Simulated assay, not measured.
Amino acid sequence: VKFGNCNTPKPSFFDFEGKQKWEAWKALGDSSPHQAMQEYIATVKKLDPSWNPQIPEKRGKEGKIGFGGPVVSSLYQEETIREEDKNIFDYCRENNIDHVTKAIQSKKVDVNVKDEEGRALLHWACDRGHKELVSVLLQHAADVNSQVTDLCSLSPASACEFFDIVELLLKSGADPTLLDQEGCLAEEVTDCKAITSMLQQHTAGKA
């Protein structure tokens, strides 16, 4: 309704909510803002038959807009973290190569350390498209086939369509035959034909 066709980059692989919103928006294709508006109104009326768009919604105690009021279509945004509160994963996500490198070289951080969700630094670097950081982590012996809930580094790189990172991972020994938690190969989680082709060729080569 507000922006027309999907006009934002695909969200992070680990941003599950934002990714679902983005995919739903993308799936609308060339729907016009007017058509989207009509479908939105029909959906709201179905969920709340008593809703009347002519009656303005009252703000709650905390100033939030009630059901039926304005809807902001915003993709996932991470909250700002104070410098003193950052951990190694925060520096990795923001592509602070110098900090991450020094932490690993000084032995303060294990290159294969994982966060509370089991995601390694390499997973986050692949997810964010930080090719140079991915290369640095691999040079410091990051486990290219390390898995989190049966998810290898190839999956986020493939899903977010980072061709050059997928290529780098494969050259570094990434296994394209590993399945994710839903039983899918990395080639099955991407819409990029070039990445799918490269993964399939690599798989055939291993066979």
Rank of each mutant, 00 (worst) to 15 (best):
V1H: 13
G4M: 00
C6I: 10
T8I: 09
T8N: 05
P11I: 05
F13D: 05
F16R: 15
Q20V: 09
Q20S: 13
E23D: 06
E23M: 07
A24W: 02
K26D: 12
A27G: 10
L28T: 08
S31C: 06
H34T: 09
H34C: 01
Q38S: 08
V44L: 15
K46A: 15
K46P: 01
S50R: 12
S50A: 13
P53Q: 06
I55L: 12
I55G: 01
P56L: 12
E57M: 13
G60Y: 05
G60K: 05
E62S: 08
E62C: 07
G63Q: 06
K64S: 08
K64W: 14
I65L: 15
F67L: 13
V72E: 11
S74D: 11
L75Y: 14
Y76N: 13
E79F: 02
I81W: 03
R82E: 08
D90T: 11
Y91F: 14
C92T: 15
C92L: 08
R93C: 11
N96L: 03
I97D: 13
D98Q: 14
V100G: 09
V100W: 03
A103P: 02
I104V: 15
I104W: 03
Q105L: 14
Q105C: 10
S106K: 06
D110H: 02
K114P: 00
E116R: 07
E116D: 12
E116K: 12
E117H: 09
R119I: 01
A120Y: 07
L122K: 10
L122P: 11
L122C: 13
H123Q: 14
W124Y: 15
D127W: 05
R128F: 14
G129K: 09
H130M: 11
H130S: 15
K131E: 15
E132N: 15
V134M: 08
V134E: 06
V136E: 13
V136G: 02
V136D: 07
H140G: 00
A142I: 07
D143A: 12
L151F: 00
S153M: 08
S155L: 05
S158F: 00
S158V: 01
A159R: 09
E161D: 10
F162Q: 14
F162L: 09
F163T: 05
V166W: 03
E167N: 06
L168Q: 12
L169C: 02
L169S: 02
K171F: 01
K171A: 08
G173I: 02
A174M: 06
D175Y: 03
T177I: 06
L178K: 10
Q181T: 04
G183M: 06
L185Q: 07
A186N: 07
A186W: 03
V189M: 05
T190H: 06
D191W: 00
C192Q: 12
I195N: 01
T196Y: 04
M198D: 04
L199D: 02
Q200W: 01
H202T: 11
K206H: 06
